[in-house]
Design a protein around this nucleic acid. Structure first.
Lengths: 149, 149
DNA sequence: CTCTTATTGTTTTTTTTGTAACAAATGTTA
DNA sequence: TAACATTTGTTACAAAAAAAACAATAAGAG
């Protein structure tokens, strides 16, 4: 190798390919919660998390969704404003409140969940079952490794 | 299935897993060009693209990197300011200029490229060769499918 | 040609986001 | 228990990004 310039073909570079796909996946799912329900990604994640936990503090939402506490704070504020969430006083620690879905929030959650699950299916429909499993397990494996460092 | 509420476990939901990993990958590569060279993601992509093409217009950079023309415009402005890029007049169309690396830009490019390639290797070191190929080919396959729609 | 439309890129404005300071409550230590 | 530190969440300000308006040029139609 006498070699010349170091070269990099961005299109062939895994982190770049991945970044592109990530945007596509994100946009594809957002079609549901953004266009149809006017939620941002963070709001959707908070809604999904509260729906999953029934009553949960802001701190735990942040831990669960991997969002910053301020992003969570703002998403909560917005969800309360549209009456999808309500605060309950948790007697134990007066700094924090437990959050729960209102009936409006419940309804949104129950409407959106099947739609995003369908959307996920549609998104992955071009892959075989085996490919889907591989992609998911490789995603989790790499993610776990990067989290360790 | 008499079934109750529709439920969604965010942690098990592929688009969520993927979004987390994407952030991790992005941050991991950014360690090189951000911390060591003070470039943003967009600036790095533009630099890499000009390095790859030698002389290229703003419009084509945008097409190539999948960035918005305004993001490209600003990244170019910043790269010119730090003397990594220069404009050449392209006689054909006086609206647009061809962009090329200066010797400083050349040097940055040639320093960064091997470093990010190393970083990519390090990032993927925990996967087998087969797994890396699978991940890359599945990424490309899904990406191509989503681009069609 | 000349008038309209489209392209290319920049600038301006608005909105969103992130960083850091803050308040309120709790926990800890001397 | 008084003083200090930590946790939890919000607010204020600064940085960044997106949206929209703009200028300059080019292309196309009549």
């Amino acid at each position: 190798m006498t070699s010349g310039q170091p070269q990099l073909d961005l299109q062939q570079f895994f982190p770049y390919q991945f970044s592109i796909l990530s945007g596509q996946v994100s946009d594809y799912i957002a079609l549901i919660y953004k266009q149809q329900y006017g939620l941002t990604k963070f709001e959707w994640r908070v809604l999904a998390t509260v729906g999953q936990h029934l009553a949960i503090s802001s701190k735990n939402i942040a831990a669960f969704t991997q969002l910053d506490k301020m992003q969570v704070s703002r998403a909560i504020a917005r969800l309360i404003k549209i009456a999808a969430l309500e605060q309950q006083n948790s007697s134990e620690d007066r700094r924090s409140h437990l959050l729960a879905l209102t009936s409006i929030g419940q309804q949104m959650y129950q409407e959106i969940v099947p739609l995003v699950i369908e959307q996920e299916k549609r998104m992955l429909a071009g892959l075989t079952q085996q490919e889907r499993q591989l992609l998911s397990s490789l995603t989790l494996k790499l993610s776990a490794q990067l989290a360790d460092q």
